[in-house]
Computed example of a mutant assay.
Amino acid sequence: MTLRSICVFCGASPGAHPIYRQAAEALGRHLAEQGVRVIYGGGAVGLMGVVADAAMAAGGEVVGIIPQSLERAEIGHTGLTRLEVVDTMHTRKARMAELSDAFIALPGGLGTLEELFEVWTWGQLGYHSKPLGLLDVNGFYAKLGDFLDHLVQERFVRAEHRGMLQLSETPDDLLHKLRHWQPSVAPKWVDRQPE
């Protein structure tokens, strides 16, 4: 699969440990070196700003999408290839998805998780067939992985849909997995039996 543009979801905070910043820098730089355009939330703060700055410094192309209501709070990044200011969060997410061939989540908070789960749900429902991945920095997503496995065991999520989310500790390995991912053809529902 050819990946020309990847949407990166990540925190507007730098997190508690320097390793998160280092991982964001490594991802931004790696995407630029691979000729992959970065699509992200448009902020200049936290890991968002780190990814964008690293990609730009490595000669990459970076497109930020930010709603008017967050342009001041997340300090809209003025040093990008392009910054699009949109009217709502819904428009932001739809535009990021439209411009992207795949999605990667770095560590982040509720917004990062919400964005990841929304595009994952869209894929599960067949609205797109784009790969998703987690950059598992220092075991950040290990407990989430355990919980997702629990959802499968409890028959709320099909194993095929769980498998839609790739996980890796390095940008290079994660990009390899995303490029070789095959979409699931399983229907969304685990059981369709009456209660």
Rank of each mutant, 00 (worst) to 15 (best):
Arg4Lys: 07
Ser5Phe: 11
Ile6Glu: 09
Ile6Tyr: 03
Val8Tyr: 04
Ala12Asp: 14
Ala16Trp: 14
His17Ala: 14
Pro18Glu: 13
Pro18Ser: 09
Ile19His: 11
Tyr20His: 11
Arg21Phe: 12
Gln22Gly: 02
Gln22Leu: 12
Ala23Ser: 12
Ala24Ser: 12
Glu25Met: 09
Leu27Met: 02
Arg29Thr: 13
Leu31Pro: 12
Leu31Ile: 11
Ala32Ser: 04
Glu33Asn: 12
Ile39Tyr: 03
Ile39Ser: 03
Ala44Trp: 08
Met48Ala: 09
Val51Ala: 02
Met56Ser: 15
Ala58Leu: 10
Gly59Ala: 06
Val62Ile: 06
Val62Gln: 10
Ile65Ser: 00
Leu70Arg: 05
Glu71Cys: 14
Ile75Glu: 15
His77Glu: 02
Leu80Trp: 08
Val85Pro: 06
Val86Thr: 05
Asp87Thr: 14
Thr88Pro: 08
Arg92Ser: 00
Arg95Ala: 07
Arg95Ser: 03
Glu98Pro: 01
Leu99Thr: 08
Ala102Lys: 05
Gly109Leu: 05
Gly109Cys: 05
Gly111Glu: 11
Gly111Phe: 06
Gly111His: 09
Gly111Ile: 04
Leu113Ala: 05
Glu115Ala: 00
Phe117His: 00
Phe117Thr: 07
Glu118Ile: 10
Val119Gln: 08
Thr121Gln: 04
Thr121Ala: 03
Gly123Cys: 02
Gly126Pro: 11
Ser129Gly: 10
Ser129Asp: 15
Lys130Ala: 11
Pro131Glu: 01
Leu135Ala: 10
Leu135Arg: 02
Asp136Ile: 01
Asn138Ile: 00
Tyr141Ser: 02
Tyr141Lys: 05
Asp149His: 10
Val152Lys: 04
Gln153Asp: 13
Phe156Glu: 14
Arg158Thr: 08
His161Phe: 07
Arg162Ala: 11
Met164Gly: 01
Met164Leu: 07
Leu167Thr: 15
Glu169Ala: 05
Pro171Gly: 02
Pro171Lys: 06
Asp172Lys: 07
Asp173Ser: 08
Asp191Ala: 09
Pro194Ala: 02
Glu195Met: 13
